[in-house]
Design a protein around this nucleic acid. Structure first.
Lengths: 211, 211
DNA sequence: ACGATCCCTGACTGGCGACCCAGTCAAATC
DNA sequence: GATTTGACTGGGTCGCCAGTCAGGGATCGT
């Protein structure tokens, strides 16, 4: 209660903050080294903390990894919702979603995390659930934007849900290709593919997208 | 030369056969247990062979895994080429390719292998090269079928290569979803998506596909 | 026949990494 | 100011697994 600096962190806050810090470090380390060769001690080192502390806050390594994936997925969906809540015509919002999907540059390696997570999710139901929610989120958002465009008279589409599933799938697959073999597909071409397919799905011309 | 049973295996043949056997067992074990929790001794057990033998034929575990992925990829591309060399109209051949892409049933888990391989390929250039060839093969075949259809007057498409890339990407992404969350997408729906998108890409009606 | 070569065995090892635990110190509570 | 609680340290343990190695039996060339 009567701590020196008013609302400054109580012990519970301190623990929460430390946990968040560990999740953050875990994400960075996994992105850099890959899930397979990430050790608990690497994450400890990246946080300047003893190895034992990790197991004080998280019972097992799996717990830590799972929590990190969940946090990352949730933050991604949150940012996505902000995007479609933003201003502009439906096609502008759709284009923003597409661009958020696609790595912003060669150095944006955040997709690597999901490649690792897919492989892990095959065996780990908890991870699979997180992935299901993440993908479900993307599809839902795409479907929402399409429906909004239809109401506004901008789009024509007889199956927004199906269109969203196809678009989401195509983006997943193309991003894998882009992430793995950046030489085989430029970001520009990737975005062009996305716009062509999206334009077809919602019944507008490809040139309707902003430059 | 003068062996007891005519063309019965010489030592070199025996070694080749054993290597192939090990590659086969490796694929089965990795599919079943996942790359991360596959040990060399598991593969030995699955072949009824001592642990040491693996390292007689393959210097390291990585060598074995890489060779297995390469063999699997090559056999996949080979079967694919047979498919498009087969009889029928272009749309029939295209449909056969789509159906070959999609797991034939819930129990067909062969895609799991490529999920593991994608994650591995991020770190291992050799694996990445194999994946590049495999995906390149798929795109090439799709592009070929489309071009054949155009020559035959069945299809209209102003960018067969681009169309093939989009289709390949969509199938990759949708199959991931199907493999990971089979409850969220039935095989039927997956095939329907593939046909809808393919029909659009080649300028025919969706109903042109065989029942 | 006989050494050379090859395929194969299975016990062994060396390192590594997740997890444990005894103890420290500071903040919170009384 | 005494006691309890909670965050944290760092050394230790224990199991696991890729890769090694000495040897053995079969098959080859000569």
């Amino acid at each position: 209660m009567r701590s020196a600096e008013g609302a400054r962190s109580s012990r519970a806050d301190q623990a929460d903050q430390r946990r968040a810090e560990l999740l953050d470090a875990a994400r960075r380390v996994v992105l850099e080294r890959g899930l397979a060769s990430t050790r608990v001690s690497d994450i400890a080192k990246a946080t300047n903390v003893s190895g034992g502390l990790i197991h004080y806050h998280f019972a097992t390594k799996d717990d830590l990894i799972t929590a990190m994936l969940r946090a990352t997925s949730e933050s991604e969906v949150r940012r996505l919702r902000e995007i479609i809540a933003g201003p502009g015509t439906a096609i502008q919002r759709l284009d923003r979603v597409l661009r958020f999907y696609i790595p912003s540059s060669r150095s944006d390696q955040s997709w690597i995390l999901w490649l690792d997570a897919w492989a892990l999710g095959v065996r780990e139901p908890h991870v699979r659930d997180i992935l299901l929610e993440l993908e479900g989120g993307w599809i839902e958002i795409l479907s929402e934007v399409i429906s909004q465009g239809m109401e506004a008279g901008e789009f024509t589409c007889d199956d927004p849900q199906g269109a969203a599933e196809r678009l989401d799938g195509m983006l997943d697959g193309l991003v894998v290709r882009y992430t793995l073999h950046s030489g085989a597909m430029s970001r520009k071409r990737l975005l062009e593919h996305a716009r062509i397919a999206a334009a077809r799905e919602v019944g507008v011309d490809r040139s309707s997208f902003p430059a």
